[in-house]
């Protein structure tokens, strides 16, 4: 039981990290990014091929995966999303952009299918797959490393948004984009950077997931739905909300599967999700009304 809780927390923090990317993009662009799962898949594949070709471990892959996913997000926003976004800028809820992100999702998934085939792939990293004991509870080293990377990345993101000039400009744009323009902030550049960061976070999540996960072209789908639940649960646009939401889901999944079949834990997740939405429709950390 103790180990189940520990594993739930470790896994939950990584789910939380994948959701942080989604919530950041939503918080700033007010666009639900349906391509998030496909970005995660890209991060997983990038890590997979890096490990395959270099024979090193997946954490070293971050050096390549982070810039790769960052620029992928940056340019997808700049060339594919921005034109649609610009033409819908006076619309309260830009539907066109959501359809574009859905298109990107399908395009990336099928591109991966064409290039890599549909089979499940895993990597075997013996050095990190062994379980180690913390206070008598057992968890695989890869999940523990994943936990620390998730916490570190979230902490860095928080610091960046709170104190850097660009981070403050991102927050300002998320709160009032027209006022931000009047400050001399180029809102489209902010969107490019935000999209890049959100995508890079997915890349990082991919790298830490890979040692105990598998990768195939539509792997993003499962995590995508999970991420939407986490983000709405925690409060749309809230970064602490995404982390806490991730932990809740991770714990339910891990502890629940001690008592019931794994596939039933998903049922439990949705029931708790609905209860929280009934009690607090804006999510745990959500701000009521406008964000």
């Amino acid at each position: 039981m103790g180990s189940a809780i520990l594993n739930g927390i470790l896994m939950g923090s990584i789910y939380g990290l994948t959701a942080v990317g989604l919530t950041l993009i939503f918080g700033v662009l007010k666009v639900i990014n349906f391509a998030q799962g496909a970005f995660l898949m890209s991060g997983l594949f990038a890590t997979y091929w890096f490990v395959k070709f270099t024979g090193t471990n997946p954490y070293l892959a971050l050096v390549v995966v982070v810039p790769f996913t960052y620029f992928m997000g940056y340019y997808i926003q700049k060339f594919l999303i921005k034109p649609v976004f610009e033409s819908e800028k006076d619309v309260r809820e830009p539907i066109g952009v959501i359809i574009v992100t859905t298109g990107i999702w399908y395009m990336l998934d099928n591109l991966a299918l064409m290039l890599f085939g549909a089979q499940y792939r895993t990597i075997n990293v013996p050095s990190v797959s062994k379980a180690i004991s913390i206070f008598g509870l057992y968890a695989p080293l890869s999940k523990i490393i994943g936990f620390f990377i998730s916490i570190t990345v979230s902490g860095l993101l928080f610091w960046f948004l709170k104190y850097s000039k660009m981070g403050k400009a991102i927050r300002a744009t998320s709160q009032d984009r027209e006022a931000a323009s009047l400050m001399g902030i180029n809102q489209y550049k902010i969107y490019n950077v935000t999209f890049g960061i959100g995508t890079a976070i997915c890349g990082i999540a991919g790298a830490v997931l890979l040692p105990f996960y598998y990768v195939y072209p539509t792997v993003g789908m499962h995590l995508d739905i999970m991420d939407f639940v986490i983000v709405v649960l925690g409060g749309l646009g809230s970064i602490p909300g995404a982390l806490v939401g991730g932990l809740i889901i991770g714990l339910i999944e891990s502890v629940g599967s001690q008592f019931i079949a794994y596939s039933w834990t998903i049922e439990v997740i949705y029931i708790i999700f609905l209860i929280i939405l009934f009690v607090k429709p804006s999510g745990l950390f959500g701000v009521k009304g406008e964000f």
Binding site: K168, R171, A172, Q175, D176, A180, L182
Partner: peptide
């Protein structure tokens, strides 16, 4: 300086 202040409320 826009009408209605337009401050960033959470800053």
């Amino acid at each position: 300086v826009p009408e209605g202040r337009r401050l960033f409320p959470f800053m």
